[in-house]
Nucleic acid binder design. Sequence first.
DNA 1: CTGGTAACCTGGCCGC
DNA 2: TGCGGCCAGGTTACCA
Length: 263
Amino acid sequence: MPELPEVASFRRFFDRHFLQRRIASAQARNPKIVRGVSARELEEALPGRSFPGSRQHGKYFFAQVENSPWVVMHFGMNGYLESFENPEEEPLYTRLLIEFEDGGFFAYVNQRMLGWVGLAADPDELIAEKGLGPDALSGNIRLEEFREKFAGRRGDIKPALMDQSIIAGIGNIYSDEILFQARIHPRKKVHDLGPQQIELIFEKSKSVLRTAVDRNADTSAFPENFLLRDRRKGALCPVCGNKLRTAKVSGRTAYFCPRCQSE
DNA sequence: CTGGTAACCTGGCCGC
DNA sequence: TGCGGCCAGGTTACCA
């Protein structure tokens, strides 16, 4: 689930529920979820402090901590955040549990353990270390830069869109929507794209993600002409009614409309 | 350098 | 009902 729009909704959720509440304790329910620092280090960095703010960069989320490094979270394939009031409500697969002095709880939940949490003195430093490109919605990306990053690429357009070092935040799902809205086949070679097509992809990247963020990543609230409203085997194209098809593109399953996105 | 692949984990689902 | 095999929205080490 967690690509840029989902992480944006997690951030919204985090800000609404957890800002300014004093932390009583933190516990890594599964220490393996903690990366870069020891579980103990993370647990000891939080008690007595609160979260004054938060940040997002692509698929990464940062929770600011008073007088302490930020808590970094990556959600992997299926992580999410939860808020609850009673211990018995703790979600299955809670990996990081935080209790506040008011008695409420924060949970970072991640069934498959593909995500991780850690500490970062400076989010920008971590972003640089990971080699992430500009956040897809930050407004910092320029068309020229986008073009340059694509120039000289040999492969298909879909994995290029998902390359976090070019633009951060687009994954398998939203790359399908962007290419569908741009009417471009996922296997189209980057070097076969004309300047207008590159520009179209650039614009659609922003508009698709903006729309998804505005609707809180709730696919049922997406516009009628969005593929993501019904992205599954056997579904029909929301524009022309053709049956959607799938293709393996660099190891991932791409959904597309063979008529709207001819090869 | 580039791009493709397998591995990391833990389930859910489908078909036999 | 049971079980094997495949698939899942991410990242990354490794190989060609």
